[in-house]
Amino acid sequence: MYRFVLTRQWVCLTLIALVLIPAMIKLGFWQFHRHEHRVAQNELIAANLTAKPAPVTEVTSPGHQVPRSDFWRTVTATGTYDTAHEVVVRMRTSADDKVGFHVVTPLVLADGRVVLVNRGWVPGGDDPRAYPPVPAAPSGEVTVTGRLKADETSGGSGIKDRKGLPDRQVMLINSAQQAEYLGRPVLGGYLELDGPAPSGGSPEAIPDPDHDSIGPHMAYAVQWWLFAAAVPVGWLVLVRREKREREEEAAAGEPGSGAEREPATA
């Protein structure tokens, strides 16, 4: 009574099931690996944010590519802001998703080298091509604390590095580009300002990166694996239903009971 599984319709249904099972299992592991990556990243962020601050010159240097293990590492820098070469980064959002600019001001260290400091977010003015209103950076020597970030690239950020922008406007925060603009050696990466906030006002601070949420990836992984387990169960249910219906047709002597028919559906 199970010879019907060799018919064309049942062979096609079985092949589809055999393809779906490994595909769903693979999708489940893909989501599981995304979960593991998110957990590891959260642990890295938490550890680097709470680590003892290190002088930025001990962590990076001109031309240095900041490794992932140093992302969000708390660093300090002492120097003087070069406001004449300050730039703003276009199309950046605030904590409440308003579009504006990030303000990047070079901080000149005692040895003449420079570290880029992202001082925070400001809204755009009436003219999107004009330099926006920016609170002035503190004058004189300052010591700042912030989170170390890697240079932004189009490949890593997905942001197109557009040319022909208005004066002192950029799309990416990149130490190599700013070294050409400044004519000085610039430390690799940049510092995302964490403190102290000047008393006379400052750009809106960039919030700490999220390191509490783990996302829904584990739940999605379990769902895919449950779907994979449900496929053979569903196949067996359909086979048993088909067998039962064929037996009932044969017992009733219905014509055409031995003919090829479509598989039963749930």
Rank of each mutant, 00 (worst) to 15 (best):
R246C: 09
E204S: 04
A136V: 06
E86V: 00
S69F: 11
G63F: 08
P133L: 15
E58V: 08
P123K: 08
V87T: 06
G125D: 09
E247L: 12
A252S: 14
Q223M: 11
K163I: 13
T153K: 01
M24G: 12
I206C: 03
G253I: 09
T143M: 11
V142Y: 08
V11D: 08
D161H: 06
V222G: 10
M218W: 05
T50N: 12
T265C: 13
V88K: 00
V122L: 13
E36L: 13
P128Q: 13
I214K: 09
Q223Y: 05
H211S: 09
V186N: 05
A54Q: 13
V122Y: 05
V142D: 11
H85M: 07
A95Y: 02
G125K: 09
P166E: 14
S61F: 13
A54N: 07
G258L: 12
K163R: 15
A130T: 03
V108E: 11
K160I: 15
H33Y: 13
P62I: 11
W235R: 03
V186P: 02
R184E: 05
G256V: 08
V87S: 02
L238K: 04
R246S: 06
A266Q: 09
S202R: 04
G188P: 00
N42L: 12
E86S: 06
P106Y: 06
L44H: 14
M24E: 13
W10I: 04
W224N: 02
R113M: 08
E152N: 04
L236S: 02
D97G: 03
I45L: 14
R92A: 08
Q31S: 06
G146Y: 06
V115F: 09
D82G: 10
L236I: 05
F227Y: 06
G158A: 10
R34I: 06
Q169W: 04
M171I: 07
Q223R: 03
F71D: 15
V142P: 02
A47I: 04
L27P: 01
L15Y: 12
L18M: 15
P62V: 12
E248H: 14
Q223F: 05
P203V: 00
Q9K: 05
Y2H: 01
P106W: 00
K243F: 09
V144Y: 14
P198F: 11
E152C: 07
G158L: 12
P198T: 07
K52D: 07
Y220F: 11
D82I: 05
R90L: 06
V117T: 00
Q41W: 12
P53G: 14
H217T: 00
A179H: 01
A137K: 00
T83I: 04
G146N: 02
D161T: 01
A229G: 06
W121T: 00
G28K: 01
Q41A: 15
G146A: 14
P196E: 11
A221L: 02
H85N: 14
A51M: 10
A23N: 07
A219R: 01
